[in-house]
């Protein structure tokens, strides 16, 4: 089937099998290998990307489901040459070691800070609780996200995901 997906602001049209997973679409079809996969069962979260402005586990989303929608990946986090404060925070605070979970962690961090410019340690730990890191013991990831919050990282307007997904609003009849 033919799908068109906007990834990091650019439209891509590809013929794909309906069963193609979004993570494979990004990695194998578009060559955006910054998004990893690690577990098959949506437990580890290294495949996290934004779908219509919300982080999801792309190993458990079909590429077909992203047809006509917007995806944002780690490759779309920096604004040109300028790293996002979240990326800067991960570097400054040694928030990564092997780097495998890092893209997913940063996508969730960016999302959290867009909604909560001054998250507590507890807020941060909850936000990343669906994503596993085997290297850092989470300590420096938490610090990195706090660093970003303290260095202009909070509530930055995202360049993707401005379309509200279904169900965002609550209607009182």
């Amino acid at each position: 089937m033919r799908i068109t997906v906007t990834v990091n602001g650019e439209q891509y049209t590809r013929d794909v099998e309906p069963r193609l997973l979004l993570v494979h679409f990004l990695r194998d079809e578009l060559g955006l290998t910054g998004t990893h996969w690690g577990c098959d069962t949506s437990n580890c979260g290294v495949c996290a990307v934004w779908l219509d402005g919300t982080p999801v586990k792309s190993c458990t989303v079909l590429a077909a489901m992203a047809d006509g929608h917007e995806v944002r990946t780690v490759e779309g986090l920096a604004q040109g040459a300028e790293l996002d404060p979240v990326q800067q925070g991960f570097v400054a605070c040694h928030g990564l070691q092997c780097g495998f979970c890092t893209p997913g962690m940063m996508m969730t961090a960016r999302w959290l800070l867009d909604r909560n410019a001054d998250p507590s340690e507890e807020d941060i730990r909850k936000a990343i609780s669906g994503q596993v890191c085997r290297c850092t013991g989470y300590e420096n990831i938490v610090r990195a996200i706090r660093w970003a919050a303290e260095h202009g990282g909070g509530a930055r307007t995202a360049d993707a995901g401005t379309e509200p997904a279904p169900g965002r609003e609550e209607v009182r009849a």
Binding site: T60, A64, M65, G167, E170
Partner: peptide
């Protein structure tokens, strides 16, 4: 989808209802 990946479920067709915004309201 995890069950399909494990091939514990092998439906012949998937009907995707993610586009049904009218079902996404509280």
């Amino acid at each position: 989808l995890p069950m399909m990946k494990l091939r514990l479920a092998q439906p012949e067709a998937l009907i995707d209802i993610n586009g049904l915004g009218e079902l996404a309201l509280i």
